[in-house]
Design a protein around this nucleic acid. Sequence first.
DNA 1: GTCTATAAATAGATAGAC
DNA 2: GTCTATCTATTTATAGAC
Lengths: 227, 227
Amino acid sequence: MAKRKRRPRRAPNTPPLDSRTRILAAATAEFALRGFAATTVDRIAAHARLNKAMIYYHFSSKQHLYQIVLRTLFTSVGDVLVQIAHSPLAPDQKLDHFVATFVTEGTARHQLAPIILREIAEGGRRLDEETFTLMAHIVRVMGGIVDEGRASGQFEPVDPILLYLTTVWPIIVYLATSPIRSALARIGHFDVARLDAPRFIEHLQHINRRALMPCTANAPSPTGVSS
Amino acid sequence: MAKRKRRPRRAPNTPPLDSRTRILAAATAEFALRGFAATTVDRIAAHARLNKAMIYYHFSSKQHLYQIVLRTLFTSVGDVLVQIAHSPLAPDQKLDHFVATFVTEGTARHQLAPIILREIAEGGRRLDEETFTLMAHIVRVMGGIVDEGRASGQFEPVDPILLYLTTVWPIIVYLATSPIRSALARIGHFDVARLDAPRFIEHLQHINRRALMPCTANAPSPTGVSS
DNA sequence: GTCTATAAATAGATAGAC
DNA sequence: GTCTATCTATTTATAGAC
């Protein structure tokens, strides 16, 4: 039965969003929830409290709308991470920050992880050159940090691509599983708290530190960059 | 819906597969390639060189067919990994084996990774209890290895769930990106060889060893379990 | 800019011949 | 067991009123 139509959710004294913005927000949410193919334009319209025709007034096609959603998401997260690389921190601190920021940023934009996962599953067939490059930026950011750490002698040799694989993707999956974390805990018979963000961040930082740095430097970071 | 009669398994030298087997193979391939929603029953039928009606003769719905595909895939891979846990190897060797086997097994069944990624992106909403439990087995396998290593004093403390996150998921993503690995290398301006399976396996084993074991034990495993 | 109505194509699923 | 033909619902996209 129709259980629906709860009226969202705008903070008081906030101006109403224009239709294009509402559509983009609704599309991001729906695409993240169901994927491109399973998302209907009708649903996006309903979510945005608009008619379907309005979507085609603002965007030429469902495909096009999806493309804009992707670029927006990837750009915003990428920008934050690039800033870390340009910060004046030491390489190991940058890496810790990279991990912590990716987790918190990805939590705030909870649509990012499921969308990325589906694109990977798709073999990147839906990504245009620009979006592809946007994703490659993240690898480059990590590469830069590694190079820096190598040059200063702080890091041991490691291939940035491999470090990227073992750092970024656990984060993405961690983020994507957040809606079902309690269900997972129930089935696996463990406490959900074992999967809370600070612990996860600390674990990732820990294994990266031990992977990259000599034993003597493996003590937990005293600055405690964990959120 | 009555339980269907089990077909006798065919000897390996009997070439023609029966229609049910052909449908399952085709469905696995198509679901892996496009995901559940974007895969049409017509396409599966064409892939299996059969008519659409044949699919509904063997399976009650597209959903049902997908469910069987999932269970078959997860069971086969899960079985192999459980065997490792029961082998007489030392915990660190088991962990190395786990990584290497997951990569080779997942490469052989290349449909596994994209399908799992999409289910994660879906938030597990399409997984029934049984399939869910199948996935949880893998966590338990890792947990068992960790417990063993802890008991013998070989491993330092680590939460198995977190180790699972940082071990299994880079593998899944590694497997899923294999079709576009050369494209990624071209865009990222690096040699594809840097991402070949033995190197990736060695990297994962390396960081796990360093994450879990005291510094003195961090030398590469002499047995060279890498494929 | 926003809506209703509808076209046009396609999808899952079934009937029924052989 | 396998096929053709078809039913029905859904979906992307557009026309056109206001």
